[in-house]
């Protein structure tokens, strides 16, 4: 009961903190995704210009825009930026305070992530409404929506574990941002956020089959579009990766903490 109270209070504080600077918050949360969406929107409009019914990767213009609208929503639901400052916090010695509180650092960080997700969900709902009323997004049935949201929920934790791990590498590396940018670019490409995976050559899409990449964007988007029948397969594919990341995080934290110098204190 006490543990739950600690989590709830930390989530409340994180919500307060994240919404203190409103403009910064909106730019951080919605800015990059929105720009990315409009770039893709313009690109596909040009590609389809003259003939909206042309099929590319089995999709006409409306379906392609619908696909990328859902990519935008999935990114909001899954790609929290809660770990963005973790590396800098480690490098600058800012995690010292959390090492003293009787609430573990991972608990504090995860509560912060959950707070961020709560805000992201609200923004995703508003984005869905705007895209729907703009005629760009086609809403799924309730069961499809449930399946897609469950997938997104799991993917968001996968992303969180991955970002946390790259953040923890700051115990060894002075700068981790380039690695995080590379990870983001590779993931964006291989997950289907730029091009639907059905466009990819067979050998590539086949080799990604057991990797987490398609589950990070392509599967949830297709689930939202009603093109992915309910199946436990994506969950079961992602689960071992999450378990692996979880244990890697525990190991890296334990090893890294021995090297921590609490600089600047």
């Amino acid at each position: 009961m006490n543990t739950l109270k600690k989590w709830i209070e930390t989530i409340r504080i994180s919500l307060n903190q994240q919404t203190t600077y409103r403009l910064n918050f909106f730019l951080q949360v919605i800015g990059p995704g929105l720009v990315f969406f409009f770039v893709k929107y313009s690109l596909w409009n040009t590609i389809y210009s003259g003939n909206s019914e042309t099929l590319i990767a089995g999709m006409n213009r409306a379906q392609m825009i619908n696909y990328h609208s859902w990519v935008f929503v999935v990114a909001l639901l899954t790609q929290g930026h809660a770990s963005f400052n973790l590396s800098e916090d480690i490098r600058m010695g800012r995690i010292s305070t959390y090492l003293i509180y009787p609430f573990d650092f991972w608990e504090f960080h995860t509560a912060g992530f959950l707070a961020f997700q709560i805000l992201q969900i609200f923004i995703a709902i508003i984005s869905c409404a705007v895209l729907y009323f703009s005629g760009l997004l086609i809403l799924p049935t309730l069961s499809q929506l449930g399946f897609a949201l469950a997938l997104c929920f799991m993917v968001s934790f996968f992303w969180y574990f991955l970002q946390y791990l790259t953040g923890l590498l700051a115990f060894w590396l002075d700068e981790t941002w380039i690695m995080r940018v590379m990870l983001q670019i590779v993931t964006t490409f291989l997950s289907g956020a730029i091009l639907p995976l059905s466009i990819f050559p067979y050998w590539l899409s086949h080799s990604l089959k057991n990797s987490p990449f398609p589950i990070m964007v392509y599967y949830p988007v297709r689930a939202f579009m009603g093109e992915l029948p309910f199946s436990t397969a994506p969950f079961l594919t992602l689960l071992p990766w999450m378990i692996l990341l979880f244990f890697l995080n525990v190991l890296v934290w334990k090893k890294g903490l021995r090297l921590y110098t609490a600089a600047g204190m």
């Binding site: 600690k6 504080i13 307060n16 903190q17 010695g93 305070t97 509180y101 609430f103 600047g264």
Partner: peptide, 20 residues
């Protein structure tokens, strides 16, 4: 080094510490 959360009132931090 400040241990209080900068962007919230101190009382909020104290309430959090009460739980911790």
């Amino acid at each position: 080094k400040s241990q209080l959360w900068w962007d919230i009132p101190a009382l909020d931090s104290f309430l959090l510490l009460q739980k911790y």
